[in-house]
Design a protein around this nucleic acid. Structure first.
Lengths: 222, 222
DNA sequence: GTCTATATAGGGATAGAC
DNA sequence: GTCTATCCCTATATAGAC
């Protein structure tokens, strides 16, 4: 039954053609941008025929949608409000790290986000849902920090900041690319993005915590 | 000599084919997104032949570049640090308004920013320059507010905030579209974007000014 | 499941007549 | 300056043999 070791992504066994198509598509989309990768490119890279590719997927968007589904599963796991305990700054740092890494793994989605979501109703709905979830999550965490008296902010300030956190996180990679950042070093980009998000929170922190954060931060950024 | 009333954009006289191509392209790019508008579409809309269009422009990117040049001229006029006087909150509001309106008029650039700038070296260089200028401008204004003692922030905080201001402004329209905002009402979208940017500054304000801003803000947002 | 061959369509772009 | 006609190329997608 080794032939049934199918599904999932890139862990152990190579897997069937269908999965290989998804894996290679993801890599190529991330590297060159989805609009610049054709089904023929993908087939070439895999050394299979275009016809074969279309046996496994109805069309290119079908591939994109399946990759997006993978992404949605992973990001949903990150977007859980901690638990019973009130969150602290390290929790946030950690959660941001997980979120940014997940986004990085599927960065092709973020590179052409507007075009992708306006072309494809399904993607639009799902992405919109993720944004809503993420914003709610951010607001929850901020409220948690406020409850723990780590931070002081009004309801409106929390809502506006939650929006900005998600906006900055969503477009950090684009911003970095567009402002002429060098070839992405990957991990360094992400750390700087996390830093920028933390700086949205910093001004609301009480003095002691603010100092704490600045120490955390300066340890990370150059 | 009425035939020489050429150049510029959409003010008085209709103008020559070349300018009409630019005007119509801008409208169509803004409405449907640049990747979804072909040279044939543009020619159709203008009721001229594709050949004619290619007489006036070498290729599609040539059109995009000329539109971008128009944009750059306009945004550069907005990105001037006030003058001798120290800036106040209303100044900022006004400058943001001008910036957002200019961006709105050329929103196609922002819709597919990453793809556009990575495809075209010229656009990449120019856009990167604009971002640098804008960020420097934001930092200057923040320093001005600090000097006027309207605001209190460290050097690092000012730099991080300037980055976030430009990031939020740059991607506000994308964010709004992507999170599933309804059909753009234009002006309302912009006001909310301006509000989000102001909320980046708010936490650094002294109490009196913070209150002042909240009043300004609540007058604008629903 | 996979291949070869091919249909179809559209976009970018040019030549040459008017 | 403008049009008609056309070329080239690439992308998506399918049919049918193996």
């Amino acid at each position: 039954m080794a032939t049934k070791a199918k599904s999932s992504s890139s862990s152990a066994g190579a897997s069937k053609t269908r999965d290989r198509i998804l894996d290679v598509s993801l890599v190529m989309f991330n590297e060159r941008g989805e609009p610049n990768v054709t089904t023929n490119h993908i087939a070439d890279e895999l050394e299979i025929s275009p016809g074969n590719l279309y046996y496994h997927f109805r069309n290119k968007d079908d591939i994109v949608e399946h990759l997006f589904a993978r992404y949605e599963t992973r990001i949903d796991q990150v977007l859980v409000v901690p638990d019973e305990r009130l969150p602290n700054l390290e929790d946030i740092w950690m959660q941001l790290h997980l979120a940014f890494e997940t986004m990085w793994d599927f960065r092709f989605i973020y590179r052409d986000l507007v075009d992708l979501t306006s072309r494809n109703r399904k993607l639009r709905m799902h992405f919109s849902r993720i944004i809503k979830r993420a914003t709610a999550n951010a607001a929850e965490v901020l409220k948690g920090l406020a409850a723990a008296e780590v931070l002081r902010a009004s309801r409106d300030e929390i809502q506006a900041t939650a929006n900005n956190i998600i906006l900055v996180a969503t477009f950090w990679l684009s911003f970095n690319s567009v402002r002429g950042a060098m070839v992405e070093k990957g991990s360094e980009d992400l750390t700087e993005g996390i830093h920028q998000v933390m700086m949205l929170i910093a001004p609301f922190l009480r003095d002691a915590e603010r100092l704490h954060l600045n120490n955390l931060a300066s340890a990370y950024v150059r």
